[in-house]
Nucleic acid binder design. Structure first.
Lengths: 129, 129
DNA sequence: ATGGGGGTTCCAGTCACGGGAAGGTCAAGG
DNA sequence: CCTTGACCTTCCCGTGACTGGAACCCCCAT
């Protein structure tokens, strides 16, 4: 399989797949003409990576998870630890964003949104809250 | 005021303040020795920027908001528009993160987290959901 | 004179790619 | 045989909003 087919099958852009090879996440073979040749196990790996990335794991997390995936003697505790650390990050981010949203929501509600210059949003940013 | 004092007053790292000058958000004067000299209006601007950034506005949004802030003839509608667009982005991000968190939460709950290799997290990532 | 705590510039790195240039390869059609 | 067009290759630059660090200057106190 060439990179275009793999891209279609996995939904990952060809650029991304090349990048993943660059950083050693996947190691396709090469044809005589220099084209990458992907085996089914490569495609499987890429699907794994795509799903992990979709869950927000960093590339380094993905590397760790892949290693665990391929290690038959792994302990599921190690996987869970990575997942929990990541979820903590996500929850922290959600909390941040919720705080922003709440503040913004109040400010937006308080703003007339007409052609006059008075604006509680700018007042708040300017420090006269 | 030198940059260190401004940094203390605004809570912004000196590096960040220099960066804001670089991209034209603030224009402090210079002393004869080359040191930046910040007037109170510069400090005020930096506080404005700090608050806007804390609400998650991009630098470009900040530039726009600052321009509106300094324009006495602005229409509050323009400010509100920027704020609403930003809030939409935030809500989209929250939705994404909530979806990730929910999926992760289920997977983490399902994982024994012991010394055995069986792991529903890896199974899911591997495509055997 | 020396030490320490300011300040300055500039360059490189972050993260996970994306855009685009310049060029090689392959299969189909005229 | 030639061309066209769709592939593929590498390489380099840009993203956003900074952060770290090197190398150097300035000023005051001891």
């Amino acid at each position: 399989m060439n990179i275009g087919d793999v891209s279609n099958q996995t939904g990952l852009p060809a650029k991304t797949i090349r990048y993943y090879e660059d950083i050693g996440l996947v190691k396709p073979l090469r044809d005589d003409n220099g084209y990458r040749r992907f085996r089914s196990q490569d495609v499987h790996k890429l699907n794994f990576l795509g799903r992990a990335r979709a869950l927000g794991f960093t590339i380094e997390d993905c590397r760790t998870l892949m290693a665990l995936y391929e290690d038959e003697t792994r302990a599921s505790a190690d996987v869970k630890k990575v997942a929990r650390a990541h979820m903590a990050q996500i929850e922290a981010k959600i909390a941040d964003l919720n705080a922003m949203r709440d503040t913004l929501s109040h400010l937006i509600d308080a703003c007339a949104g007409d052609d006059r210059p008075d604006c509680p949003i700018l007042q708040d940013l300017g420090g006269q809250a």
